[in-house]
Design a protein around this nucleic acid. Structure first.
Length: 258
DNA sequence: GCGACAG
DNA sequence: ATCTTGTCGC
């Protein structure tokens, strides 16, 4: 059993980690948010990156989760796992991680290798209580995690330039007012993430610190991992894999029922 | 009260 | 997120 499998097992088995009531979940977020650390990540030490995602059934409670490990230099798939499970928490915006992390951790536990960095399809600090799924996973594992989301949950920002690599900051607060560059320079605003254009002329992605990386490092990594498509490669692979896996599980179940 | 709301 | 066919553009 790999090192990460043991840690994942302890996390999943501790009922303190998995409240069933949204009220308790919010309280847990408030307690754990203080443990998030934004710090430089040694990019030269990053050999492998894991992309994580979950695919849900429309009516059913069935779901599949995937973890795909890529070589950070070549972007080739090193290892991938997919597991089937069931929904254990409702989808509530802001409490997304309580729904998504149990199956994600199950998948991580089946990995032979221990990735150096993890990429979540969602936010880290760019969250109303600064504790999105990427921060939640990072604190539970105490490993580097980056958040890369496809739409905004919280915060305000202006639009980045249309060329690949251009970006604007995401600032805490409700999303009507565009952040003021003078206020940013004066350090008066809390920067919680970055709107990053990974493909020219295509809707940007929203990057934030999960845990044990800083925002520059997180954005550099996401851009490196998105040489061709909008969504970073590890997450693209995980998205495709868990979608296929869920359909295979459904097909197998349907076949055995007749 | 109103609007917003990751996947 | 999921359910879905064709269609516009490089």
């Amino acid at each position: 059993m790999s090192d990460i499998a043991e840690r994942v097992g302890r996390i999943l088995d501790d009922p303190e980690n998995w409240p069933s009531d949204p009220k308790e979940a919010v309280a847990l977020q408030r307690r754990m948010a203080g443990r998030v650390r934004a710090e430089p990540l040694d990019a030269s030490a990053v050999r492998t990156v894991a992309g994580l995602d979950v695919s849900y059934a429309k009516d059913d409670s069935a779901l599949s989760a995937a973890a795909v490990v890529l070589d950070a230099a070549t972007l080739e798939v090193v290892e991938s796992v997919a597991i089937a499970s069931e929904v254990s928490f409702p989808y509530i915006s802001g409490l997304f991680s309580f729904r998504e992390l149990p199956p994600v951790l199950e998948a991580l536990g089946r990995l032979e290798t221990t990735p150096d960095v993890y990429l979540c399809d969602g936010f880290g600090l760019a969250h109303p209580r600064r504790f999105g799924v990427a921060s939640h996973l990072g604190v539970l594992l105490d490993l580097p995690v980056v958040g890369s989301a496809k739409s905004v949950l919280y915060g305000r920002h202006s639009e980045p330039g249309r060329e690949r690599g251009s970006w604007t900051p995401m600032v805490a607060g409700r999303s009507e007012v565009v952040p003021d560059s003078a206020a940013l320079a004066a350090g008066g605003a809390e920067v919680i993430g970055r709107v990053l254009r990974t493909r020219a002329g295509v809707k940007p992605v929203y990057v934030s610190v999960g845990h044990r990386v800083d925002l520059d490092g997180a954005a550099d990594l996401v851009l490196r991992l998105s040489p061709k498509y909008r969504v970073p490669e590890p997450v693209r692979h995980a998205d495709r894999l868990c979608g296929e896996h869920r359909k295979e599980v459904l097909a197998a179940r349907t076949a055995s029922e007749e």
